[in-house]
Amino acid sequence: MSLQEIIDTSKELLTDKEAAEFLTTTPGTLSVWRSTGRYALPFVKIGRMVRYRRADLIAWLEKRSRTTGATA
């Protein structure tokens, strides 16, 4: 895979179902997170559709990584 292909893939827009699968959760959970603001997970609104950038999901996961057992 070339660098350009990796960059193009990282910008790919995912449906809520695809994003939920990527995060091992459900589309319903993502909906709750969006509506309550529980997590600052970036998303894109296109009309009624909700999409997630793969790069944003990866960055969000990276920010949530912990090196200790602390949960706060």
Results as ranks from 00 to 15, higher is better:
A19F: 09
I6R: 11
E18C: 02
M49P: 06
R66E: 14
R54N: 13
I6Q: 07
L41Q: 01
V44L: 11
S31E: 08
I58D: 10
M49E: 14
S35N: 13
P42T: 10
R64C: 07
T26Y: 13
E21Q: 11
R53E: 04
E5G: 09
T67V: 08
V32I: 13
R54W: 14
Q4C: 08
A59P: 03
A40R: 14
A55R: 15
G69S: 07
M49F: 09
A70L: 12
S31M: 06
L61C: 15
K63F: 06
A70N: 12
S2R: 11
I58R: 15
S10Y: 05
D56E: 11
T36A: 03
S2A: 11
I7V: 14
V32A: 05
W60T: 01
G69R: 14
G28H: 09
A72I: 02
Y52I: 02
T36G: 02
I7H: 07
G28N: 08
D16F: 01
R48A: 04
M49T: 05
Y39G: 00
K63P: 02
P42Y: 13
R66D: 06
K63C: 08
W60V: 00
L14F: 13
I46R: 14
A20G: 06
T71I: 05
L13S: 00
K63R: 15
L14Y: 12
S31H: 11
M1I: 03
L61V: 05
I58K: 12
A70Q: 11
Y39N: 03
A59K: 06
K45T: 03
S35W: 04
A55S: 15
L30E: 11
L14I: 12
G47H: 09
W33D: 00
T29F: 09
F43G: 02
R51G: 01
L41M: 12
W33I: 00
K11G: 09
R64S: 13
W60E: 01
T68Q: 08
I58S: 07
T71K: 08
Y52W: 15
G69K: 10
G47M: 06
R51C: 02
A40K: 12
S2C: 10
L30S: 00
R51V: 03
V44H: 13
S65Y: 10
V44D: 07
T71E: 11
R48S: 02
S35F: 05
V50F: 08
Y52R: 02
L30D: 00
A19W: 04
L3Q: 14
L23G: 01
S2D: 15
M1L: 05
T29E: 15
I46N: 08
K11C: 12
T26F: 12
L14N: 03
A20Y: 06
P42C: 06
P27V: 00
K11D: 07
S65T: 15
L14H: 14
A72Q: 04
D8P: 05
K45W: 03
E62Q: 13
L23V: 05
A40N: 14
E18A: 09
W60F: 15
G69I: 05
R64I: 12
D8G: 15
L41W: 04
L61G: 07
F43S: 03
S31L: 02
R66I: 04
V32T: 15
I46W: 08
R66C: 04
T29M: 10
E18K: 03
E12T: 10
T71W: 11
Q4N: 13
A19Q: 04
F22N: 01
W60H: 06
R54F: 13
V44S: 04
G28Q: 07
V44N: 06
L61F: 05
T71P: 00
K63W: 12
W33G: 00
I7K: 14
K11A: 08
